[in-house]
Design a protein around this nucleic acid. Structure first.
Lengths: 239, 239
DNA sequence: ACCTGAACACCGTTCAAGT
DNA sequence: ACCTGAACACCGTTCAAGT
């Protein structure tokens, strides 16, 4: 009984037939509940009660499987109603994106980090382009798109990697890191430490910080949307 | 001669002594020149002519080694002169950061993606905080910092992952993907395809696209800096 | 202090062979 | 068409033992 508990005869079919869908399902659940480290082609096969080679028959290789997991994940994001004003629409989409990522941090991180062979939907990109195209941005539309996409997705990826990677689990190093930073080398951080402690990218340690980055995210979105708005009308680019 | 070409006697020292520095050096070079896949603790040990266990004695484990590689990489970023106006200073730093990342794409991606045990300098964060603190942002300073950090680093990470992950190497799929997108499902992308083709995040395929994201990056930076500037004076947040 | 040699417990992927 | 069983070529990490 190398694969699962019910040893099948060589070449016999599984009693409950394995499908690509069931594989993606289980992979998603494993990553979501037990973390990325608990997932491998072998552990997944074991969970399903089949041999690893079976997975390869159904979904290709690991990269393609992760592509399918990414697709399943992204389908969980619902687009806001079309009727909304573009600014509220964009704001709401960005919020939903981040909320969905924080709800499935392990999945969101793994698929955005590993070379997943793209089964990319273009569903969300297309919707964003649609909204932006009505703003009279001209050829700048592609830059507005890239700026939104890069900043929003990037922010969330960084947030996830801080939330997931356990910083060196040296017990009460918290206090050490806190007041232990060298005021000579890092004078500005020292001075404003009360504002940044456990609240800023690169200055965070407790994996589930009591302080979320909610406000910073909102701040970023306002910067982006204000900026795009300011470039809409034939008002000059700067000044 | 399992390790290197010159077989040493059991327990004998290496003729050229291995140091932590030499290990980080070689790791950096391997990742930089041959890509992340060519790097492993074993392949690195092999390159240095020692057994894997030697590395563990000098640098701890893989996560710590990557932390050191990250540190080495980040040291290659020089801070702009202090005398510059804050806006030009910030702009220049952001440009240098991206330039440095694009110069060492494999290193920059691997260390930003893998759980590297943080040997983080806080050199750059401290400098950024210093600049921001002179703008009269009040408590918003932490959000300005997070927004800049998240958007800039995030944009670059996404750009790198598109540049590195070889999209399915199906020869002239370029043309297939180009006009092959379903106009029913993705009407907006279809309509503005000439603007986005190979020029936008999620809509890029050739790994060394002739179109860079330079302009989009500049656009993003202007949005961010304009926004921060607009929130400096006791001028109201919106309107 | 520094390194070997071997072992442990894993990986992803391929493939002939079975039903 | 679908799955087994075994193999190939790797991993990261640990540890007793040597010098």
């Amino acid at each position: 009984m190398t694969a699962g508990s019910s040893a099948r005869k060589r070449g016999a079919r599984a009693e409950v037939p394995i499908t690509a869908e069931a594989i993606v399902d289980t992979a998603f659940r494993m990553i979501d509940e037990r973390g990325a480290d608990a997932f491998s082609m072998r552990s997944l096969a074991n969970e399903l009660g089949v041999f690893p080679a079976t997975l390869y028959w159904h979904v290709g290789d690991r990269a393609r499987l992760l592509g399918l997991v990414e697709l399943r994940w992204s389908e969980g994001i619902e687009l806001p109603d079309e009727c909304e004003h573009w600014r509220d629409w964009m704001l709401e989409l960005a919020r939903r994106y981040r909320r969905h990522a924080l709800r499935h941090p392990h999945v969101a991180r793994l698929v955005s980090v590993e070379r997943a062979r793209n089964v990319d939907t273009l569903r969300i990109p297309d919707a964003i382009i649609g909204k932006l195209s009505s703003l009279g941005l001209g050829d700048q539309i592609v830059h507005a798109y890239n700026a939104m996409m890069g900043a929003v997705r990037g922010f969330v990826v960084l947030e996830l990697s801080m939330a997931i990677d356990p910083p060196p689990p040296d017990d009460a190093d918290v206090e050490d890191d806190m007041r232990g930073i060298d005021p000579e080398r890092f004078p500005h951080l020292t001075q404003h430490f009360h504002l940044f402690a456990d609240r800023a990218l690169s200055v965070r340690w407790s994996e589930t910080s009591q302080y979320s980055l909610d406000e910073s995210y909102e701040y970023l979105l306002q910067l982006l949307l204000d900026g795009i708005e300011g470039r809409m009308k034939p008002r000059r680019t700067r000044g």
